[in-house]
């Protein structure tokens, strides 16, 4: 593969790395197909979001430091997760300030604007919407909250999906409403979380789609967990998997 594109450090995210490796794998496949050189800095672990959002800021600060140490040397850092990128771009500076380490604050402010969610990178940096994907299935897209309201990715994922050959892309009713995952909210407020997820799953089923796609496997594990429990016949895929899908190597 000739690579004339930029070198990209992939931030796999701990959740994808451990539980949903298909998403970062598809991200690598896609970015390499688009001419990028992808590197995986092995020392990476976690952005710290679970700690931050549960109130464990002191536990999150070392992970912010680690994130900077691992990624500050790269011009482009890309993650297949709106939520983790949201935490990096929206919360790392706050955590660095809490640590009282001025050097860390500066390093975070310098690095985090370069950390992009996959659709941001492909559309804004690579300038592509047609990524040469093929996926002949009925699909509906859930715009996850952090992609939508923290990162403001807007319609970038939909612009990418619309160009996928063979896709039957249908609108999800009440798409912008939260699915109810919310990290530890899913277990701390399990009843409310399930009530929200059930409504989301109902809207997904209303579309008649066979695949629910989103840019975050955390939300998908929640909605998909409900859809699976219902034996709904709907599967979930990460956006990267559909964009990486080809006739030769289907998702």
């Amino acid at each position: 593969m000739t690579s004339q594109g930029p070198t990209v450090a992939i931030f796999a995210t701990c959740f994808n790395d451990t539980m949903w490796p298909e998403a970062p794998r598809a991200t690598v496949t896609l970015l390499e197909r688009l001419g990028c050189t992808v590197v995986f800095p092995r020392e990476q672990t976690c952005c710290g979001q679970m700690f931050t959002n549960t109130g464990y800021a002191d536990e999150a600060v070392p992970l912010v430091r680690k994130f900077v140490d691992v990624f500050e040397r790269y011009e482009h850092v890309v993650a297949p997760s709106g939520s983790c990128v949201g935490s990096v771009r929206d919360q790392h500076a706050m955590l660095a300030r809490r640590s009282g380490d001025g050097g860390l604050v500066t390093a975070v402010e310098e690095l985090t604007p370069r950390v992009l969610e996959l659709s941001e990178f492909v559309v804004d940096v690579l300038g592509r919407t047609d990524v040469g994907a093929y996926f002949p299935h009925r699909v509906t897209y859930h715009p996850t909250c952090h992609s939508l309201r923290m990162l403001h990715v807007g319609d970038r994922p939909l612009r990418l999906l619309r160009e996928v050959r063979g896709i039957d892309l249908v609108d999800l009713p009440n798409a912008t409403e939260c699915c109810g995952f919310g990290g530890t909210f899913a277990v701390k407020n399990a009843d409310t979380s399930i009530a929200m997820g059930s409504d989301k799953a109902r809207h997904v089923r209303e579309t008649g789609a066979e695949v629910l796609v989103a840019g975050d496997n955390s939300c998908l594990s929640h909605i998909g967990g409900i859809l699976g429990r219902q034996r709904s016949g709907v599967r979930t895929l990460h956006l990267a998997q559909i964009l990486a899908s080809t006739e030769e190597d289907p998702a």
Partner: peptide
């Protein structure tokens, strides 16, 4: 109310090492 995701047989970093080797990144 939710199925639990089954852990994969191979993590992303195991896959990376198998397909891209140790030297392809900044390990």
């Amino acid at each position: 109310a939710r199925d639990v995701p089954t852990p994969p047989k191979e993590t992303f970093r195991q896959w990376w090492r198998r397909t891209h080797g140790d030297g392809a990144g900044t390990d």
